Computed example of a mutant assay.
Amino acid sequence: MREPRVHDMVATWTFRRVTTGDFPLLARWLSYRHVARWWNHEWSPDAVERDFGPSARGEEPNEDWLALLAGRPVGLLQRCWWSDYPQYLAEMTPVYLPPPGAVSVDYLIGEPGDVGRGLGPSMIAAFTTHTWSELPQSSCVVVPVVAANRASWRALEKAGFVPVAEGELEPDNPIDDRWHRVLRLDRP
């Protein structure tokens, strides 16, 4: 049987905002080795509440989304306007200046059994389409990825993103090198 291609699955994804009821699921995902390696995030109930609570309550400008495939939670996506985070934008600017209307996303596939099945590129492509319809003023999506995380930047490329820059940025995990790839996808 043929493996589904990225574009075959784009229409089957749905997205909903993360609620406080999702925190146990997020904590479990953040504890898995394949997520913890790149996210370097605490997963205690207090830490998840601290880091995801403001977004879930609408107190933070970023948005956290669950990605569901056939109704089953598979991944987490975070989306923000670059302009909402001046410190992050200032760090990024020497490497690449996101244009007006640019958003950024971060993402993960939660369960270990879902990794390596082509779900990442499909989820990213579907969420980008979701972004175009939900944020009509968005011009592009610009994503910096630590260069050592080949699976992550390859998922972006498979979803249609193109490399636009490379340079040093602060990594999410202090064990990583500062070298990042920056990928971009323009609104069609």
Rank of each mutant, 00 (worst) to 15 (best):
R2C: 05
P4I: 07
P4H: 08
H7W: 14
M9Y: 00
V10I: 15
V18Y: 12
T19D: 05
D22P: 05
L25G: 02
A27M: 10
L30N: 09
L30F: 14
R33W: 08
V35E: 02
A36S: 11
R37P: 00
W38Y: 08
W38T: 06
D46E: 15
E49A: 13
G53E: 06
P54S: 05
S55V: 00
R57V: 00
L68S: 09
V74W: 05
L76A: 04
L76P: 03
L77Q: 11
Q78F: 01
D84V: 00
Y85I: 01
A90Y: 02
E91I: 00
E91G: 03
Y96E: 10
P98Q: 15
P99A: 13
P100A: 12
V103I: 05
S104I: 01
S104M: 09
G110H: 08
G110L: 09
P112R: 12
P112Q: 09
P112N: 11
P112F: 04
P112G: 06
D114C: 08
V115L: 03
G116Q: 10
R117N: 08
G118M: 04
G120Q: 04
G120E: 03
G120K: 02
A125G: 02
A125R: 15
F127E: 06
F127I: 06
T128L: 03
H130E: 14
T131H: 06
W132R: 15
S133T: 14
E134A: 14
S138R: 09
S138E: 11
S138Y: 00
S139G: 14
S139N: 11
A151Y: 07
W153A: 01
L156N: 04
L156Q: 03
F161N: 03
V162E: 15
P171E: 13
I175C: 10
I175Q: 14
D177S: 11
W179S: 05
H180A: 01
R184K: 14
D186I: 00
R187Y: 12
P188D: 10
P188W: 12
